[in-house]
């Protein structure tokens, strides 16, 4: 479930990045690459687990699936927070700088 949710997040971010390209001011490429990196890593994790337990990998209990879903959503939230922090630090449109200067 975590892998699935992260892949969906990566695909959505990539579509948004593609639709806005070549404008890179929102750092959407970073967000997509972050989610793709995590998706690839969880894919390897899933393959290793599948090789160990076989078809049982797909037969999770409801409680495990719910826990995995919460984890997947939390991972997406964390990814978005990291992306926001990068965006504010780099501030490619100068919004933060302008806001701070206006207040001073």
């Amino acid at each position: 479930m975590t892998l699935l949710l992260t892949v969906f997040a990566a695909v959505i971010c990539t579509i948004v990045w593609y639709s806005k390209a070549p404008d890179a001011s929102m750092q959407l490429g970073t967000l997509s690459l972050m989610f793709w990196g995590a998706s690839i890593m969880w894919l390897v994790d899933a393959i290793v687990e599948y090789s160990e337990v076989g078809a049982a990998y797909f037969m999770q209990s409801g409680a495990d699936m719910l826990n995995d879903m919460y984890l997947g959503l939390s991972v997406i939230a964390l990814g978005l927070v990291i992306w926001l922090a990068i965006l504010f630090i780099k501030d490619p449109r100068g919004v933060i700088k302008k806001t701070l200067l206006k207040n001073n």
Partner: peptide
Amino acid sequence: MLWGGSAL
């Protein structure tokens, strides 16, 4: 990809 994936 590496930093983002590792962090998550």
